[in-house]
Design a binder for these strands. Structure first.
Length: 261
DNA sequence: AAAGGTAGCAACCGCGGGGCG
DNA sequence: CCGCCCCGCGGTTGCTACCTT
């Protein structure tokens, strides 16, 4: 079948590819991407496999809209660290750097534009005092330089601006202390009706750098299709696709045969 | 109802760093 | 010490869905 298509596949992943990847990551862990790419028979680069796993297939990923808490956190951390997306992502369990990056680009830019619009509107009528950044800085970057932490264009009204300095310190010690756990509890409570706490034990500076093994994550969806299922033991997972039950071992065996390895 | 514009998201690309022989 | 390979990160692009006119 797979007569070495000299072209490696690119573009969107299919369900079958996802399944294969999930199975092989389950077997070999989430480190040897090049190896997995070869062995799995996926005609993808290791890089692509890693990206797919990290950004989409990882069982601990939390999907859905950013919560206000997360938004605030992103804002604060970005003001502190800049575009260190992966670093920021480590502070947001279940969120990927890509997701945060995209979020920032879209939402924050929008906010910035709104803000800019509002400022130019107000400056035409009455020059606002805080128009320090109105000197023509359309980009988010300029606005995010809110080192003081109080100039937040994040004006949802409900959000009390916390001194970034102050908050950052709390974040630094967040691993064990109050802040992060509480924040994530809030998030979990407010948003996850279905998800049991996928964050348990997940949060650390290494963050969700799961070491993969027996990917035990309660509930997690593959788009509309449930991809994971727990057995009675509560620790063994089988992928589902469209109500079909697959065994990872079948998939792996199949792949290995086709890959002639 | 159709067309155009915009937002959101998934995926790719290039580069740098670290590990290993 | 040097070169190679692999991994991870940040930036960018492209596609799709949704919204507006």
């Amino acid at each position: 079948m797979k007569t070495v298509q000299e072209e490696t596949r690119k573009g969107p992943w299919t369900e079958q590819e996802d399944l294969q990847l999930v199975c092989f990551v389950g077997l070999f862990g989430d480190r040897r991407w090049d190896f997995i790419a070869k062995v799995s028979g996926l005609n993808r680069t290791g890089k692509s496999c890693r990206l797919r796993w990290v950004n989409y297939l990882h069982p601990d990923l939390k999907r859905g809209k950013m919560t206000p808490q997360e938004e605030r956190l992103v804002l604060e951390l970005h003001s502190k660290w800049g575009n260190r997306w992966s670093r920021i992502a480590r502070k947001l369990p279940g969120r990927t750097d890509n997701e945060i990056k995209n979020y920032w680009r879209t939402h924050m830019r929008k906010k910035a534009q709104e803000r800019k619009r509002a400022m130019s509107a107000s400056s035409s009528s009455s020059s606002s005092s805080n128009s320090s950044s109105a000197s023509g800085n359309p980009t988010v970057e300029s606005i995010q330089s809110t080192e003081t932490g109080e100039e937040s264009f994040y004006d949802t009204g409900g959000i009390t601006t916390v001194s970034t300095e102050q908050k950052s310190e709390e974040l630094e010690k967040g691993e064990e202390g109050y802040s992060m756990d509480d924040i994530w509890k809030e998030i979990a409570l407010s948003e996850d009706k279905n998800m049991t706490s996928v964050y348990d034990g997940c949060y650390s500076e290494e963050g969700c750098n799961f070491s993969c093994p027996p990917m035990a994550s309660p509930s997690w969806g593959y788009s509309s299709n449930a991809l994971w299922h727990m057995d009675d033991e509560g620790n063994k997972l089988f992928p589902f696709v469209n109500d079909q039950l697959f065994s990872c071992y079948d998939i792996v065996r199949e792949s290995l045969l086709t890959a002639e390895l």
